[in-house]
Write a protein that binds this DNA or RNA. Sequence first.
DNA 1: AAGTTCTGCAACCGCTAGTTA
DNA 2: CTAACTAGCGGTTGCAGAACT
Length: 265
Amino acid sequence: MGQDQDDMMMMMMTRKGPWTEQEDVQLISFVNMFGDRRWDFIAKVSGLKRSGKSCRLRWVNYLHPGLKRGKMTPQEERRIVELHSKWGNRWSRIARKLPGRTDNEIKNYWRTHMRKEAQEKKRALSPSSSLSDFSSHSSICTNNPTFDSINPMMETDEKNFYDTGGLEMLIITNSRSSNTSPIKSIDATATSVNSSEGDDGYTSMDEIWKNIDSLEKDGIRPMFDTSNEMTPLPIWDYSLNTLWMMDGHEEIGSNMFFPDNKRVI
DNA sequence: AAGTTCTGCAACCGCTAGTTA
DNA sequence: CTAACTAGCGGTTGCAGAACT
């Protein structure tokens, strides 16, 4: 079958809408194997009928182990307001300063926040005032282009916490545990990531992938073999359980990969 | 109790910047 | 150099559950 037909098939087979628990488990296992960069590859290889884009989004906004769930703390709220006044609707940038929070979450929070504020103002002002439909224009003041030019010095190479997730998080975790991971053995320097702020000592996933590629060229293979059968193996010590031990999350049953012994793919 | 409105959040869409061949 | 591809970003939508009438 030709590539075009393959793509056509993929298009037709693509699923949309809410993710099922089964899909989540499948995605987690494949991200654990291949890292959180090659989304298209993961989408294809995992057998999920999802686009790479959709997989990435699901991981970044919901499945990433570094995510905090639950309500924003007053400190976080203050920080968002502060940063938003500085940067406007640069949600991903704001998210970088709020570990465990995603741009989507902050964006949603802000919308709610603005809506509430608008309503309060409405109430405070006379009924004749025309602050109408503030909520549907959440960026009423934030699309101001000046926000983009403010604070050029604030331009840093800060990394989003979930940018460094996937393999890198695995590496950190693995460096604490005793097991060997393919990546750990490939790039020991990556274990020195400063995880406190995420801004220093950063080793990009690209570098790691390059390392993998170069090692593969040298005939050294990682523990997983992408050319063979796509059996999801939880080969890294990074316990999947931890993904589900966050606030308000139940743990998935004992057979994480094949609940009810169903075939995943 | 039933219907309506509101709220919070997950997910999609379209665009852009960066990367690769 | 450039075209194609991919990941990431910001805006928007749709839905489920809560709150209200």
